[in-house]
Design a protein around this nucleic acid. Structure first.
Lengths: 226, 226
DNA sequence: GTATATTATATCCAAAAGGATAAAAAAATG
DNA sequence: CATTTTTTTATCCTTTTGGATATAATATAC
């Protein structure tokens, strides 16, 4: 099945006149892993005739979505420069509407995807998916279905764990904590007191269902919140 | 000695008679991101005529390397089930010899790759590399060169940071710490005293140049040590 | 075997993290 | 405006970390 894919030149989308009711689909592929993105893009073009545009950062993605080109599907990598967990996903979903948004990830955790779907995402394409299945999933999603793989992703938190999204401030604090800064140092850095940071950390841990800051950092990293 | 069973339908490697001195190359592609692996594999086959075998776990990789098939190049993903940082990289390099081993990663940190190269790795292929460049890099490496991209990876630790590899015990302890376990709980889990764990944590932090356990967890996750 | 590392343990101690409660300060809401 | 909510701060406290030092118990090497 896999034959030539030439990576570079996708068909440009936009103004495409005189196509039937089921016109050719425009896909925005947002992934900084160009190697993968080009491969997917070329498969789309070759086997389905879908026009594909690439974006390598969140910024580029939003730019493309604001460019006026009407996309049918956005394939969004969870770990891309600029991405900050659920926060960014929501942003893209809003900007992409009414285009469908499906997530791509190497190892997303269950709860994040679940919440993302509740917020309008059309599912998840794990990077561990065989090539062949990819096309089927894309068409499935284009037809209006939601696709979530039954397995193949990290266990996440099977228990009671709602993937709340942290505020920008909380994300900043968690990031600093992940870099080894103490509460006192963080406080100094953002001009607050140590106690304030401590309260934020407690809030962060509660929201992430983390046992302590080390655990919070782990969860933050795995959900690419930070 | 099992015959090369290749993952999809790539040309089977091994006994390939009647090729010139520069015989066709056998490549082992170890990456659990099948989507990407198949794309690379097909590009290899199509544009270069290189036979490619896929492996999706460290275990499979080592099995292939022990199967008797002579590979010329192993492309090894840093984040694959079973992989534990430098430890596993060394293992693969040893098992692959005299085949060349080049790393693949979405976001490897500088120091790890540096140390890996000092241990015999032939360089790094970032997943952000354009498709076109991939072929060039592969041939470059096959010709005996080491390839390390000048940019496009996480800053890592620019300062004085030697990516030492942790012992199995240390990795286990760090992993438990990343899951929010306290020293006391870890001690209980592995039948040691709290103080012993504390000493190990200190040793871990020293080796990773981490400021504290939260930082150590971050580094451990980023280097996929845990 | 002895000598030399490595690993584990015991006691100290100071700093930081985690938790609770109450009260200002600021922001958002009506 | 007044009111409600959120954020920030203060003061307690307990547990956990992080660090130092010394001593036992294993290994590892010679």
């Amino acid at each position: 099945m896999n034959t030539p894919r030439d990576a570079s030149e996708q068909n440009s989308p936009s103004s495409d006149p005189g196509m039937g009711a089921t016109a050719r689909k425009n896909i925005l592929l947002a992934d900084d892993h160009v190697l993968l993105a080009e491969a997917i893009a070329s498969a789309m073009v070759r086997t389905q005739g879908y026009a594909t545009v690439l974006a390598a950062t969140l910024e580029q993605t939003l730019q493309e979505l604001a460019s006026g080109v009407k996309f049918d599907l956005v394939m969004l990598d969870l770990k891309m420069p600029g991405m900050m967990g659920l926060r960014s996903i929501k942003e893209v979903i809003a900007a992409a509407a009414p285009a469908k948004v499906v997530l791509i990830s190497g190892n997303a955790d269950r709860s994040l995807v679940q919440i993302a779907v509740e917020n309008g995402a059309r599912g998840l394409i794990p990077k561990t998916l065989p090539f062949e299945s990819l096309i089927s999933v894309v068409n499935l999603v284009l037809s209006g279905q939601v696709f979530i793989p039954a397995e193949g992703w990290s266990e996440g938190a099977g228990t009671s764990d709602q993937s709340a999204d942290l505020s920008d401030k909380e994300i900043g604090i968690l990031r600093m904590a992940s870099e080894g800064l103490t509460n006192k140092e963080i406080a100094l850095a953002i001009g607050k007191t140590e106690v304030a940071i401590k309260m934020h950390m407690r809030s962060i841990c509660r929201q992430l269902a983390a046992r302590n800051r080390a655990h919070a950092v782990t969860i933050g990293l795995e959900r690419s919140l930070i």
